[in-house]
Design a binder for these strands. Structure first.
Lengths: 212, 212
DNA sequence: TGTTGTGAAGGCGTTCACAGCC
DNA sequence: GGCTGTGAACGCCTTCACAACA
């Protein structure tokens, strides 16, 4: 396998990374279907992109295809897995133990991709101590210690909006490297910490706007 | 209140609509805090945008500010509510009755903004008949009829990936106008149907990429 | 022939900068 | 003086188009 490494200092856009996730998913399906090779055209068709876009996206990371043939499914899958960092384990801290957190916790896909939730915390006494599978819900007062001691690198914030920035501050000071925020509030984190936001209301509002 | 209506045929970008949602949230907070006016600078600071961007975004829909003063909080809130279509009720159909669907169902924010879930459907006999608040989970076999009879306009797909396209097809043929898809699969819908995707795995993969 | 890889062109969203107005 | 509204400049992402090559 050719090492998937950027040779240039070109900044890869967020859109490109998101599309890589899409290609990754399609390649998994193609593998299950027993396909050996795939063209940029097919990959585009099944992932909702365009052939040129597929080739351009991949070109940021190397030359993975064969002219006249296309891409080897197994090889490209491995390349993208490596590019996206899915070939390792990511220790995750889940803050908030509400319905959304529980849905995320029970979601099998994450664990399959290497995202392993190793702590669940909340500030509700009624929830603290609850067993969630092999974990017990802990008090959010222990957040910083838990993150440090278990060396958790990604924090998922699934708390009410009012608590989100405070939680983020504690995560950051404890050394968290990435934050996935579900609270509908703009968070401030230092530039070295990666931040992604998922705001369900924004998506519904986007639909509402389009339907008007 | 000046009517919020686009005078030009300029296509408003998706980014602009998403930012409007952010401004909307900040304005709500400002209102609670008793602020009467707000400048593009403050709005940008609190929503994670830039002053020029705020003004440009708003300019697509009208002229809502006063030079030298800024924007009236109450008025701008009403304008954006109208622009985003949050001044009406949207009847929503929730397909899939798993943990994620339940989290969405119990989320109070949606109802507050006018998104009212009026049907929950699943194909699991063990779930059909379950009471979810004032609703009962119905069989997905009745999907088309339910959408038509209750005149539901937005469908939320919270099913496994394998079922998603089939559900989307039924929703579309029953006359649904917008789809919010949580299944990790690219959906095909006719151009007249609005489609938004929320893919939690993509967000985690984006973090993973950034942390590598 | 078929398909990739990629420089160049194109298009679109963001930022600038300033005229206009309160 | 302060802040908005907006045409113009800018920069980035996407698309094109074709040379390279299996």
């Amino acid at each position: 396998m050719i090492s998937a490494r950027r040779t240039e200092e070109t900044r890869v856009s967020d859109s490109t990374v998101r599309r890589l996730s899409g290609y990754y998913r399609v390649l998994g399906e193609l593998l299950e279907q027993g396909e050996n090779t795939v063209s940029s055209y097919q990959l585009a068709l099944r992932s909702g992109s365009t052939p040129a876009q597929v080739r351009k996206d991949l070109s940021f990371f190397g030359q993975f295809g064969k002219r006249g043939t296309g891409y080897d499914v197994v090889q490209l899958l491995a390349e993208i897995r490596s590019i996206l960092g899915l070939d390792r384990r990511w220790k995750v801290c889940l803050v908030g133990a509400g319905n959304l957190a529980h849905a995320l916790f029970t979601h099998k896909e994450f664990e399959r991709e290497g995202f392993v939730i190793e702590a669940v915390l909340d500030n509700d006494p009624a929830k603290i101590g609850q067993r969630w599978s092999h974990l017990a819900v802990e008090t959010v007062e222990h957040l910083a210690r838990v993150v440090r001691e278990r060396q958790l690198v990604i924090g998922i914030i699934a708390t009410p909006a009012a608590a989100a920035q405070d939680v983020a501050d504690h995560l950051v000071s404890a050394g968290i490297q990435g934050v996935l925020n579900f609270a509908p509030r703009k968070l401030s984190v230092p530039p070295k910490v990666s931040l992604r936001n998922v705001n369900l209301a924004i998506e519904l509002e986007g639909l509402s706007f389009a339907l008007k």
